[in-house]
Each structure stands twice: as C-alpha cells, then as structure tokens.
C-alpha cells in the first residue's frame, strides 16, 4: 500500500513538473509575441497561476512522503527513539488537523464559486470552480495520505517498531537531507 501511495505521489509530481515546464514555455511564447509582434494573448499569467496552484497542491503529499515539510529539531534530535516516534505521531496529527480544515475550506470556497457563478475578473473570465476543484482535490489527496500514514505509524508504535516510524515520518537526518539537495 505504501508503495502505491509513493508511486501515486511521484506521478502527480511528474505531471505537475511537466505542467510547470509547460507554463514556462507559455510565458516564454507570450514574452516573444509581445515583444516581436506587439500581441498579447492576455491571460497567460492567469492560466499559469492555476497550473501553479493545482500542481503545488498535488505535490504536497510527495513533500510529506519525502519528509521535507520543515520541522525544527531543537530538542527532537536529543530525544530517545520512543519519544521521537511519539512526536512524529503528534506532528502528523497536527498537520492532519490543519490540512483537514484547509481542505474543507477549499471545498467550501469551490462550492461558493459554483453557487455564485464566480468568474475571474480578466479577459479570460475563467469559471473559477473548475480550477478550484482540481486544487481542492490535491489538498484532499494530501489529507488522505496523512490519514494512511498516521494509521501506519500508530500501528508501528504499538508494535514498538520505532525505527520504521523514523524512516517513514521522522525528521530527516542531515545526511538524508543533503542527499535530497544534491542527488542527481
């Protein structure tokens, strides 16, 4: 199961990255058109921001699985594995709390857009609930991954398997962190 989640989050990051590159190309073309042909598509910035919002919300789970959401290990590093594991569980629970609220409010915002027929105030006039629902779905995926992880590490905690908890959701050791930063 965990490997499926990893794979899903990795695919969504690849797709998000692809779309990011696509928006870089769009912006590049817009700049060329504006400077050479005095023509502006109007709205490239807006479409790119939707791509950005959706891409990032679908990447949050990958960030979590890579243990890259910043935690400050002032005391954490000096604690026993059991205490660390307990804090890992607490951390994930806290993150789930705020993510659940974020997701719920994002849904609320999306349904509001739908109800009032909200459209962006630009030449494009995009119907807002469409990008918003894709964005909210990414947040929902982020939340689901957290629920699964929280379940797994709680089970591991009961089984007293602190080492595996650290591998799943511990604060990264320095060696691991740099590996991310420079790995090719």
């Amino acid at each position: 199961m965990l490997s499926i989640i990893h794979a899903l989050s990795r695919y969504s990051v690849w797709i998000s990255g692809g779309f990011l590159l696509l928006s870089a190309v769009l912006v590049g073309v817009e700049v060329l058109m504006r400077n050479i042909f005095q023509y502006s598509f109007g709205g490239v910035d807006e479409i790119s921001s939707y791509i950005f919002a959706i891409g990032v919300s679908w990447s949050l789970a990958f960030t979590l699985l890579s243990r890259a959401h910043i935690r400050i290990d002032l005391f954490y590093g000096r604690m026993t594995p059991t205490w660390r594991a307990a804090l890992d569980i607490l951390s994930l629970a806290c993150l789930l709390c705020v993510t659940a609220l974020l997701f719920q409010q994002a849904l609320d915002s999306t349904t509001t857009s739908f109800e009032i027929g909200a459209r962006s105030n630009t030449p494009l006039g995009v119907t807002l609930w469409i990008p918003q629902s894709l964005w909210a779905a990414g947040l929902g995926f982020f939340g689901l991954v957290q629920i699964y992880l929280l379940g797994s590490i709680t089970r591991l905690f009961i089984k007293n398997n602190m080492k595996q908890i650290a591998e799943i959701s511990g604060v990264k050791s320095l060696d691991e962190e740099i590996e991310d930063e420079i790995s090719a």
Partner: peptide, 9 residues
C-alpha cells in the same frame, strides 16, 4: 521535477 516540486510544496 521531483526536487523542484518537493521544495515548492
């Protein structure tokens, strides 16, 4: 892409 989106997230 992986490193970019992870850090951006």
């Amino acid at each position: 892409f992986e490193n970019t989106m992870r850090t951006t997230g």
